[in-house]
Write a protein that binds this DNA or RNA. Sequence first.
DNA 1: CGCATCAGTCAACAGCCGTAGAATGAACGC
DNA 2: GCGTTCATTCTACGGCTGTTGACTGATGCG
Lengths: 214, 214
Amino acid sequence: MTEPTARPTRAQQRRQTEDRILTAARQLFAERGYDRTTIRAVASSAGVDAGLVMHYFGSKDLLFARVTETAPAPDVFQAATGGGAGAEAGELYGGTPDEATEALLTSLGRRLTDEPESSLAVLRSMLTNADAADRYRTAAQPQLDQLTEAIPAPDADLRASLLSAIIHGVIAERYLLRLTNLADASPEQIITLLRPCFESLTTAPADDAADGQG
Amino acid sequence: MTEPTARPTRAQQRRQTEDRILTAARQLFAERGYDRTTIRAVASSAGVDAGLVMHYFGSKDLLFARVTETAPAPDVFQAATGGGAGAEAGELYGGTPDEATEALLTSLGRRLTDEPESSLAVLRSMLTNADAADRYRTAAQPQLDQLTEAIPAPDADLRASLLSAIIHGVIAERYLLRLTNLADASPEQIITLLRPCFESLTTAPADDAADGQG
DNA sequence: CGCATCAGTCAACAGCCGTAGAATGAACGC
DNA sequence: GCGTTCATTCTACGGCTGTTGACTGATGCG
C-alpha cells in the first residue's frame, strides 16, 4: 500500500511545513519573546518564505496563539499522571493537602528537568503581550480552582495563587534570568528545599485557628 | 535673596528636563517593557523632542541603563531601615535567620504596598532584555551573598536564591500578570502566609538532619 | 556689546517590521 | 489532456523605529 516513495500528498506536505513553522516559532518565541521574534526569522528558521507563514497562519498574533495553544504545558501545574491517559486531572488535587503538595512538587520537578521550551514561550511572552497574559489567566483559572479545593483553609484561593507564583518565580529565575545558583542546582535539591514551603501553604493553620470546618 | 522669579539657570533647567525624561522613561518601561517603549513615546510623554532624548542619553540602551541604575530598588531585597540613612545594609541580614526572615518580609510588604514603578521596569525588562538581566544579576549578587551568610546551612546560597525567586514570583504575578487572587489580597495576608515558607528556607534543618544529607 | 555655548526642534534617512498581492509551477480532479 | 487548486515565492508598500545632523534662539561669559 504505502510505497516508500518520498512523495507525500499535498495535504501531508502542508501539515509537515506547518509543523516546521510551528516548531521554529515555538523555539524563537521562547528564546526571544513575542516582540523580538519576527515572522521573517520564523520563516527563515523553518526554511520557507515569510509570506507563507502569513498565508498559513493569518497574522503574527494568530501564529503566536497557535504556538501557545499547542504548547504541551499551558497549565500552571501539570501533575505527572505516570502515563495514565485515563486519569482525570480533576482527581489529582482532589485528595489530601499532602497529595496536592506532592503533585505540585512532581510537576515542578518535571518542569525543571525537561527543556521547557513552549512553557517558556508562554511565560516570557506573558509579561509583554497582553493577549498571552489573558490566555494564560483563563487557562490557569480552572487549575487554580482545582488546587484551591484541595486546601482546607478559608483563604485557600490565595494560597493556591501563591503556590503558582512560587513555581513561576523559580522557573523564571532559573531559565529566564539564569541566576547561577538556581540554574546549577539539581531539581531534587530544589524540590527538597521547597517541600516544607509548599506544605505550609497547602495545610491549614491547625494550631490556633480552631475553625474546625473540615 | 532668592527671587521667586521662575528663571532657573541653564544647568538647572537641563537637569530638570533630564529628570522629566527619566521619569517618563521609567514609567513607560515599567508599563510596556523595553521593546514596546519607543524613544518617541518617552519624549512625547516628557514633553520634548525625540532628538533631545538622544542628545542627552546617547541611545535607547543607555537611557534604559540610566533608568535601571537610577531605580530606587534594583536590589532584590531592600530591607526597611526605618529611615535611618546611616544604617548599613550589611548589618541587616548579618544576624539570626529570624532577623533575615523578618527583613525579607518587611521588604516584600513595602514592595506590595508602594507603587513599584521602577522596580517593575527592571523586573519586566529583565525577562526580555539580556543586558537588563546581566545588570540585575550583577547588582543582586552582593545582596544574595549577604543573605546567604545569614542562613546557617550548607546550601545557603541556593536557599537565598529561592527566596529571591519567591519574592519575584509573587511580585510578578501580582503586578505583571495580575492574577486576581494575588492582586486583590492585602500585603498583610500575603506576608502572613509566606512567613512559615520563608522560615523553612532561612532556618537550617537542625531537627532531623541526622540522616546523611549526602 | 559680541561671541561662544547649549537647550531644544525639525526634517530626514536607512532599516526593519507586518502584511498584501501578483506570479509561478507542480499536484490534483475530471 | 485540461482547467483548477494550491503550496510556495517574489516584490513591494506603508508604517514605525532608532538615530543623525542641520538649524534656531535663548543664555552665559568676556
